[in-house]
Write a protein that binds this DNA or RNA. Structure first.
Lengths: 112, 112
DNA sequence: CGCTATAGATAGCGATGCTATGCATGGGAG
DNA sequence: CTCCCATGCATAGCATCGCTATCTATAGCG
């Protein structure tokens, strides 16, 4: 996947991954990789700053813990984050629909 | 539509609009607005630099003409541009599929 | 002891779309 | 006749944001 394609959609993906329950950064990255069959495999230098951004924005809240001698920051969705995720889903539908229409491709998935 | 969402997908949209035949910048902008029912309404400050970029990249070729006293730069797809458009469509399918999967939304369109 | 996986972090960069602004012409409103 | 708007093109400067490269640290395995 082209690197820059993600711009503006990363936040929604992270929020969606946290919807299933609290996770720490590394686990989020892995979960995203697995749920997309390797298509979305974020470098850690993308994940951590993005989580900081989301926390500053109040969409997620983090807390430190120590597991197996390693410190972990576990994040969970805030109420605001759930709202934002819902908005992201709506705007993704709109965006994907508009781009699909403009590109002249069949609505996803193209099975024909 | 959120402004930054377009990042990385603009080129494909412009190329797709030119697929139906040569167009000048302003007409491309209008065609895109109409084909997406107003969802994608690009400011001219986005369109013209993007066209210059595509021309520099050899994906489109432009020529000046004068219509009604106004000068126009009409662009058309090059062979390379057609190839790039095809690639864009593939990568859009892949990207949209991955994001849709990760967001946990139904494949577009969500009619349920 | 070194390598790898796990876990987190940051500086600096580059790409790219947007805002604001400018120029120019033609046509319609007043 | 004059002003404003739509058309048409253009650029400077900005802001955003994901990536690369690099760093720290621990646990476990060979």
């Amino acid at each position: 996947m082209r690197a820059e394609a993600l711009k503006g959609h990363l936040d929604g993906l992270l929020l969606a991954t946290l919807e299933g329950g609290p996770q720490h950064g590394y686990a989020i990255k892995e979960a995203l990789r697995e749920s997309t069959e390797g298509h979305i495999d974020l470098p850690t230098g993308t994940v951590y700053p993005a989580l900081h951004r989301l926390e500053r924005a109040g969409l997620i809240s983090g807390s430190w813990s120590v597991v197996g001698g390693r410190r972990r920051r576990t994040y969970e969705l805030t109420a605001e984050g759930r709202k934002a995720l819902s908005d992201e889903r709506d705007s993704w539908q709109e965006f994907a629909g508009a781009v699909t229409a403009a590109l002249g491709t069949r609505p996803w998935p193209a099975t024909s």
